[in-house]
Design a protein around this nucleic acid. Structure first.
Ligand SMILES: [Mn+2]
Ligand SMILES: [Mn+2]
Ligand SMILES: [Mn+2]
Ligand SMILES: [Mn+2]
Lengths: 219, 219
DNA sequence: GGCAAGACTTTGATCAATCAAAATGAAATC
DNA sequence: GATTTCATTTTGATTGATCAAAGTCTTGCC
């Protein structure tokens, strides 16, 4: 029964708090993330508070309640399962499914979602490498680090790209940096602000620290 | 860019005009069909007129323009393809997919719809036996008649149930009267207002004319 | 022809979501 | 401590969709 708008706000608050690993999410981030005017976010947050989905301290920020967290996780599950379906079953490109899922996530019933989950073989990760919460609202946390933090020269598997803009995803694909691929950090030079890495058997290339930080791998 | 509401109105006008085979659709039917107050329908129809989706003669009725017909056919395509997917791929029951499709039809992009169509093997009929319009907005018309009109004692195939309420669909299933099944009219007695029919090899049973009229078969 | 009934339209209001612009508060700078 | 700046909140307005209730046609009936 929450509106699509309410669902979008709660999901955004959840991903912002996961991304920044901070409890409180600022009004500015929310407004920016959802591309609405600042005042719109403030007024909507008050609505969420009335629904007991968030706690709100004026001029400080917003945190999800247990109820809000549950809804947020459910939305993440919807969104990521839908993305997985679009890529795995319908063959859409992983760079373009986000927008589609942004709409479909609100239109899909619990029942259809469960069937879809089963149909897809209960996947644990979406096409971008993000974990898909279970029906109970939990996801298995992984020991994961970004390419800049990798010390030893072992093979690692790309798990997640934190910048999911179409431009970055296309760049990543050109370089072969897609989730599931093995990479090795062949050189790491903090002074030059870059890492050198090899994807598969291809010749190594260098990535700036900004980009390297966006690519998460499992050890 | 039409809102879900606009899409629902246009679709309803189209199915009403197909069902009653009349050009003009009355305001009352629309309001009733969409479960809104009469005044709501009137005001919404004026919006559709402004968008050039319908022609509207006050106190007479509404007809779709070419633009409206195109949108209506597109919605029918969306709705019926989604229903087909839910039954064929996810294994939902054909008695329960209508509500699901009612939401999903508004959330699915042209691109995803095309992929879905391909994925399903370009089906021509939905689980209820209704024809699925092509991308070009046409459907193959069939020579089809209801069970009450059947004269000769030949085998016929059930194509469509015009009453798609859950109750009627459940009744139909109990009797084996599902699209694709063969039936034979074993006796027809207009005075007793009933037809006797046999489904497969089971013992014949009698159906009142009201119910018989709701079951369409191909000759 | 006149009138009652039913269908339809108009009116006035509400609710959710939004914006622009004005007001306010808190933090950082002087 | 006073001031400036920037984030946030408040205010006032708009838009789409809806309802209830009041007003107006049209039609068929006497
Ligand atoms: Mn969304
Ligand atoms: Mn994703
Ligand atoms: Mn619908
Ligand atoms: Mn159907």
């Amino acid at each position: 029964m929450p509106s699509a708008t309410v669902e979008n706000y709660v999901k955004k608050i959840l991903v912002l708090s996961l991304d920044t690993s901070e409890e409180q999410v600022g009004m500015g981030e929310i407004a920016k993330g959802l591309e609405v005017a600042a005042g719109t976010a403030t007024s909507m947050i008050k609505t969420l508070e009335r629904e007991r989905l968030v706690r709100y301290k004026s001029r400080q920020g917003v945190t999800l309640t247990a109820k809000g967290l549950k809804l947020g996780m459910d939305m993440l599950r919807r969104h990521r399962l839908v993305e997985t379906f679009l890529v795995e079953s319908l063959g859409l490109d992983w760079t373009e499914v986000h927008q589609e899922a942004e709409e479909l996530e609100h239109a899909i019933s619990e029942k259809v979602l469960d069937r879809l989950d089963k149909f897809l073989g209960r996947p644990e990760f979406d096409p971008h490498g993000d974990p898909i919460p279970t029906k109970e609202g939990k996801f298995a946390e992984r020991r994961i680090r970004n390419l800049l933090e990798c010390q030893s020269k072992k093979l690692r598997t790309i798990k997640l790209l934190t910048d999911q803009s179409t431009d970055f995803l296309n760049f990543a694909r050109r370089k072969g940096l897609v989730p599931g691929t093995s990479v090795e950090v062949t050189n790491r030079d903090l002074i030059s602000d870059a890492v050198e890495l090899r994807v598969g058997n291809k010749k190594p290339f260098t990535l700036g620290s900004k980009a390297a930080k966006k690519i998460l791998v499992s050890s």
